[in-house]
Simulated scan of single mutants.
Amino acid sequence: MANETDVRFAVENMYPWRYRDREMLAYAPDWDVTKDDYRHFTIDLSHTATARSDALAMVDRMGDRLGHVHLADGRGSAKDEHLVPGRGTQPCAEVLERLALTGFDGHVVIEVNTRRAMSSAEREADLAEALAFTRLHLASAVKVPRR
């Protein structure tokens, strides 16, 4: 399909499932998609938090095959949190700034969980905060065209 369209079919990083001191590999062939030679990748920063992996190193391994970013944050919980960027431990700002510096031409999608919002106003405020964070950090670096 990739040869027939301009659509980028990207494989997303996942995470190992954990319960107490046990870990189960639920995704085949691996949760770290950079171990395979896919044409395009999606990085999900909430998933890097859950995997307790280095998001910047993963972005580097993906290189110019990175086509999509699912922007969210996390604290390393065994549950996939999808927090508003900046509320967890992931280098969300640094990832966005690196993308801007390298001329990233893919898509950045804000993927946050708003189920805990107590009202639609709180939900809208969380989404507005996520959007402002994204715009700030994508615009904060001087763009250099890819070669």
Rank of each mutant, 00 (worst) to 15 (best):
A100P: 08
W31T: 08
E97W: 03
L127T: 14
V33C: 00
V11T: 09
G88Q: 06
A78W: 12
F133L: 01
R123F: 02
I43C: 04
A117W: 04
T89P: 00
L101A: 15
I43P: 10
G106M: 08
R87G: 02
R52L: 09
P91E: 11
S46F: 06
M62C: 07
V108N: 02
K143R: 14
E12W: 03
F133H: 12
H137I: 05
D6Q: 14
L83D: 05
M58Q: 13
F41M: 03
Y19A: 13
T34Y: 01
F133D: 07
R22H: 12
G88C: 07
D64P: 15
Y15I: 10
Y19V: 15
H137C: 01
G76Y: 11
K143H: 12
T48V: 01
H137F: 02
S53T: 14
R123I: 07
T34D: 05
A72Q: 09
I110Q: 09
D21G: 03
E122F: 05
P16Q: 02
V109M: 10
A26L: 15
G86D: 00
T114C: 01
A125R: 13
M62N: 02
A49H: 08
G76P: 12
A10P: 10
C92P: 00
A130C: 08
K143D: 03
D105E: 06
M1C: 06
D6L: 14
G88W: 03
A2I: 14
L127D: 08
D37Y: 14
L136F: 06
E4M: 09
A141R: 14
L127E: 07
A57L: 06
P145V: 04
A121P: 03
Q90F: 11
H82G: 00
L83W: 07
M24K: 14
Y38R: 01
A139H: 12
S120C: 00
M24L: 13
L96A: 12
A57N: 02
F9I: 11
D30T: 10
P91N: 01
S120M: 14
R75T: 15
T89D: 09
H137T: 02
T50H: 11
L96N: 12
D37E: 12
R135K: 13
A139W: 08
A72Y: 00
D60I: 09
V33W: 04
R39G: 10
P145A: 06
V142I: 11
H137R: 02
A72W: 01
H40I: 04
A139I: 07
D60A: 15
A57V: 00
M118V: 15
